[in-house]
Design a protein around this nucleic acid. Sequence first.
RNA 1: GGAACGGUGGCAGAGUGGACAAAUGCAUCCGCCUUGAAAGCGGAAGGCCCAAAAGGCCCGGGGGUUCGAAUCCCUUCCGUUCCGCCA
Length: 430
Amino acid sequence: MIDIRLLRNAPEVVRAAMDRRAKPDLIAQLDHALRLDARLRDIVVERDEVRHQVNNISKQVGSLREAGDTTGAEVLMAQSRDLGTRAAGLAAESVEVESALREVMLCIPNLPHADAPDGTSDRDNRVVVGPNNLPTSFPTHRRVPHWETAEQLGILDNERAVKISGAMFTMQRGLGATLARALCQYALDANVDAFEEIRPPSLVTTATLTATGQLPKFADDAYSIERDDLWCIPTAEVPLTSIYAGEVLREDELPKRLMAYSPCYRREAGSAGRDTRGMLRGHEFDKVEIFALALPEQAPELLVELRDRAERLISALGLPYRIIEICTGDFGQSHHRSFDLEVYAPGCDTWLEVSSVSWFSDYQARRADIRVKRGMQKGTDFAHTLNGSALAVPRVWAAILENFREEDGSVTVPSVLRPYMRGAERITRP
RNA sequence: GGAACGGUGGCAGAGUGGACAAAUGCAUCCGCCUUGAAAGCGGAAGGCCCAAAAGGCCCGGGGGUUCGAAUCCCUUCCGUUCCGCCA
């Protein structure tokens, strides 16, 4: 959520920020929020005034009774009853306006960072690092899509995954399954120097999914378990962000660095029929997420740290990659500044997004109500949240199969993964 | 799923219709004392709305009773214990 006070006191600043996102209907939403806010404050002021009168009268009733003046007390009680009715009416009205305002505010996206590049679509995203590790050319045996290689090696069985669960589910077998798990272990071990490992729940409440920004606007993208009013997480970012929801932390507790392996569930509404082969897009996949909860002034450095860590993992695997800075027109709702890490897959001849590292300023913390108490300072500040995929398994898995395919059709296992694959150096035909 | 008991400030915990934003203890901060620290003594200090003052709100959430609710009633969520079931 953006700060309603900022919108109220400097609407032109917020309007300019929303302009940068290149979504014309946002301005109308801002005006709508502004109107509701003005109305709400009028009602609240009046409600408080009436309540004040009720409180005063009640005190007088008490003392009159003590003094034995029952008639005087009766008169005041009648007055107070009327005022009470009026206060109740105003209170009901304020609740209504407040929830309408909240609904609008929950849909207004975050303000972009000043340094985020302007743009209207993903075409305006900028390559900021790389390409690195990119050979000048690929031999023909590396121009094979991973699903073909995987089938030859017997390590991917999507046909049966579909039988079991329906379209867009994948299933790895043998060393393919081992490779998927190895990638997670590798990503966790590489960050354990600074990050606490969490194994979060994969099913979360509506409030939790609202905190990170998926709800209320993007409900169609998530799986819901209606009977129990729970949602399947689309990323570990969701439970990690809410770990400290509703809490007030001391400033010396920050930054907090957390990481988690989790399965991720996405309905991929609107993507039916796209990337149906192989491992590029599925309803369920594994990912290791790294997350930081920080003081505002710590956030810029942490953004670089998270990005560097994601980069190092990919780089150490020996995969060709580049880093893209996302432009304002391609931002997700909660983004303040954001980078994608892409890996080149020669078999598909495309760059695959394998990681996304983002800074959300206080947008998510405001929704989750994560605050910081600084010293003896009066009041509290909202924390900042940042996160990034350390490693998203399926596309890295695919990129490994395409980049390290040998002439005989086997795949060389990157050396950093071998300890996690019982020493296996290659994946060969059965 | 059934039963019982609970949910109050950073934590622990008192308060069962009015003077309660709420005792007390621990933790925190400032001062005194001390070479320094501890102990001791004195003092400060909850969150939220509003630009702020005034004012209002906040004792898990919601609703009700009442002139007035932390306190009574209903409901819901969460926790603990016991029973049942279960990886």
